[in-house]
Every structure is written in structure tokens, then in C-alpha cells.
Design a binder for these strands. Sequence first.
DNA 1: CCCACGACCTGTGGGC
DNA 2: TGCCCACAGGTCGTGG
Length: 287
Amino acid sequence: MPELPEVETVRRGLAPVLEGARLARVEARRPDLRFPLPEGFVQRLTGAVVNRLERRAKYLLARLDRDETLVMHLGMSGRFEIAGGATKVRPGGFALAQPPDPRHAHIVFETEAGAVITFYDPRRFGYMDLIATSQLEAHPWFDGLGPEPLDGCFGARRLARAFAGRRQSVKATLLDQRVVAGLGNIYVCEALFRAGIDPERPAGAVSQRKLGDLVESVRAVLREAIEAGGSTLRDYASADGALGYFQHRFQVYGREGESCVRPGCRGRVERIVQGGRSTFACSRCQR
DNA sequence: CCCACGACCTGTGGGC
DNA sequence: TGCCCACAGGTCGTGG
């Protein structure tokens, strides 16, 4: 489910409950998510204090009061729910009209203050691991990861270098986490539409000017989405109006057959398949 | 190295 | 109503 804005929204929701909190009880209700949980997962976390909750790309990083970081990835369908304690927040754009299916409650963290944080993941593409903080950069998940798109180090220069000579489509290239970290199918479609770039164009054939537009589009769409609390799909009945409403602002994603929203354009949004995944675009505006 | 594709796993929505 | 298929926000491994 989550791309950068959703993961960032989850981080912001969890941080007030987790940062500075001691994990009084940890429960792993199954031995694995996408991958087996690390040896001694529960025991190594029990009693630990979460100093900070950070995000890198689509990973959540809970920095512990020891040389260990709890790394969490939400996969496609991972979500957290907070209960108890002083707060009733449901972090992320994942507030459900109905309570999450308890069969998919895989990991439970309980803080000393009494907050219960449950990780649900029906498809189980999510994963968690405990990694020595000093080794984090060198870990395969993080080594070679591209720049954070909202950081200063991401710019047209850097993108030009990554795109140079590349014959792969610009869509697939932007999904490559080594090129830029945190983008997924939705925000790539949206950014390419805003920049007026044909998703099928080879990355190496994007003009300098368009590259600049693309950087600005990526930044803008991510910032707006974070501000909106991310996007919530299939959950329009959600009562939690404060979280996750960016899906209403999609300009192309999921809008196959609708007229292009660009003023004056008479085109329609088309769906094509690239690398087995849907791409939405207007072929009149995106060249 | 590059790229397309299948695999992982479960749920849901649309079409018939 | 019920069934079946296509598809879903991500990544990883394989094979051409």
C-alpha cells in the first residue's frame, strides 16, 4: 500500500506514542512476515526504549537505546493501529470503517505507558528486522538506495546522471529505488503527468528541461500527499477525515477513460501495462 | 548489465 | 446470488 507519503504519515502517527517509550511487551503472533523474523525478535525488543522513529525511503526505522534498529517495511498491505494509552490515533491513511481483521494482527508492541500498537498485514509482503545501527548503511536494503526526493541532494543534476544512456522507460526508472527512494506506482504516474512526460519514453531521452519539471513534480506531488495524510484506497467509507485523502486528488491514477484534467486538453486518461503494472497517462499531454 | 516476468499472499470488485 | 478472474500501493529472484 504505502509509498513515501503513506509511510511518512504512519511515522508521524506512531512517533508521539513510540518516541521515548519503553516496549514493555512485544508479541510475535507468527514466526515470519515476508521473511522470518530475526532470532530472538521478541526478547531483543522487550525492555528497549525507542529513541527516535525515522523514515528512509519506504522503511520505518525505530532507533533503540542500544546498537540496534528495528526496521519495518509495510509491503503492500501493512498497517498499524494504536489502541490504549492516551491516544486514539490511527496512523496512516489506513483508518478502516470496520476494525482490521484480527487474523492478520501479526505483531503487537505494548509500551510501558499502556499504548498497544498492532501491525496488521493481510498479504504479508511486509517485513521487520533488527539490524545493528552501525551496519545499517551497509545493509543490502539501504546500501545503494537513491536520494530522498524531498531532500536537497535530489535534483535535476543527479537525475540526469541516473537517466543518462538509460533505455529503460522513465516510469520503470523512477520506480527503481536506487535512482530515487520512496516512489511507487501511484506517485510516479502522478509526477509524470504533472511533468508532461510520456511514461514509456526511455529515461535517457528525457530532455534537460523536462528533467527539471520532473524533479519539481515529484517534490510537489509528494509534499501535497504528505500534507493530505497520504492516500487511502478502497476505504472511502473511512470516518477518519483527517487522514489519507490524497486519493481524491489523483489526476490520472485509477482514472482510466476519464477526460484529462488539464484545461483545454481533450484527451482521455489511458491505462497501459508496463512491467506488469498499470500505468495511467494522457497521451496528448505526455510526450 | 538490462529488462521482462513470475513469485510471494490474501482480499476485493467487477463481469457474467 | 454466486463464482471466477483480474487486479491491488512492493520487492526479489530467475532467466533470456
